[in-house]
């Protein structure tokens, strides 16, 4: 891994401590990096720790979560896991923005759209006047495909897709160098999804912004990301170039995710759901965490944990099948 990455996550461990004195191992030794103007997709089922990774990076964890180990190095200098609230406040929106799945519901219902965006601009740039901020807000709305006159409207007057556009406008308001999108398009129509993917690609070209795109649907990232990290039960099981991984996945879990969705050709012979459910992270299975659901498991799998090894240049897989003699 190179040293000039925009964001480097090193051996990150984030645990939740429940009232029942259980420890939920949500993120368990995760490594990845995002270069300047790169787009990385973080893929996995609900409850595999993807969102916890995002929240650890931007340090918006609930009070019962603790970063146990690891570093998140931003721009080669700042370790976000140790940064204090002052430093973090200066980074959020200005350097790193996040768009959530529920971003559309995050908007203040009694505030005009343009005022909400202007507020973000004003809070982070004290010397901007209100007039300037509103002008900027209108330009931003236009750049995400919302006619500027709509800025005078309230969130309930917009559709779900439009509200998500407003959330994107807010995220890019201060020209950050990294945008984290956490299930940002989930639950939206396919047409709206296609529109938003086109928009994000446009923004990436124009603004040279990097992207961490978190989703459970591996098929939506095709036109958006170049790299992919597949996460299962708190660990990354496959990591590398998206094109290579989608053409020849090596980890059985990646294969499972790719085969779970029907394609337009109408053949249903190849479609398989992954049997069983993701494990409870307060008591993960021994050995390889995927072994209870894995169609290729053998004796070693429930005894020894596979390590993430580099199988080709820049491509990492954690599976015993690859080292089997």
């Amino acid at each position: 891994m190179s040293s000039n990455a925009l964001l480097r996550v090193e051996n990150l461990r984030t645990y939740y401590y429940t009232k029942m004195r259980q420890v939920v191992v949500a993120v368990d030794g995760v490594n990845f990096e995002i270069g300047n103007n790169d787009a990385l997709a973080l893929i996995g089922e609900s409850g595999c720790g993807k969102s916890t990774v995002a929240r650890t990076i931007i340090r918006l964890l609930p009070s019962n979560a603790r970063i146990v180990e690891g570093h998140v190095i931003f721009d080669g200098k700042i370790d976000l896991t140790r940064a204090n609230e002052d430093v973090l406040r200066k980074l959020r929106f200005r350097k790193i923005s996040i768009i959530f799945q529920g971003s559309m519901n995050m908007l203040d219902p009694v505030m005009k759209i343009e005022d909400q965006i202007a507020e973000v601009i004003k809070v982070h740039n004290r010397n901007t006047t209100k007039e300037e901020a509103i002008q900027q807000a209108r330009r931003l709305l236009e750049s995400v495909g919302i006619p500027p006159y709509k800025g005078k409207e309230y969130p309930h007057q917009l559709s779900g897709g439009q509200k998500q556009r407003v959330a994107i406008a807010m995220a890019i308001a201060l020209k950050p160098s990294l945008i984290i999108a956490d299930e940002a398009f989930t639950g939206l129509d396919v047409m709206v999804q296609a529109q938003l993917i086109e928009l994000l690609n446009d923004l990436r070209k124009k603004m040279k912004v990097s992207l961490l795109f978190i989703t459970h649907d591996i098929h939506v990232i095709g036109e958006l990301c170049e790299k992919i990290a597949v996460m299962y039960a708190g660990k990354i099981v496959e990591y590398g170039d998206l094109k290579k991984i989608s053409e020849s996945p090596m980890h059985p879990y990646t294969m499972g995710l790719l085969n779970a969705v029907p394609t337009l050709d109408g053949s249903i012979t190849g479609i398989r759901s992954i049997p069983g459910f993701p494990p409870n992270l307060s008591d993960p299975p021994p050995g390889c965490r995927f072994h209870p659901r894995c169609p290729y498991r053998f004796e070693l799998c429930d005894k020894e944990e596979p390590q993430l090894v580099e199988v080709e240049r820049g491509r990492y897989v954690a599976c015993h099948l690859l080292t089997r003699g």
């Binding site: 559709s159 897709g161 439009q162 396919v190 047409m191 709206v192 999804q193 296609a194 529109q195 086109e198 649907d217 591996i218 098929h219 939506v220 990232i221 095709g222 998206l242 989608s246 790719l258 969705v261 394609t263 337009l264 050709d265 109408g266």
Partner: peptide
Amino acid sequence: QALISVVPSLRKVGRKGKKIILKGE
């Protein structure tokens, strides 16, 4: 035709031609 062109898929099976992304809603 537009709806079919935007079905997300990593594998380009059965996709003919370009994406037709409709404007607006």
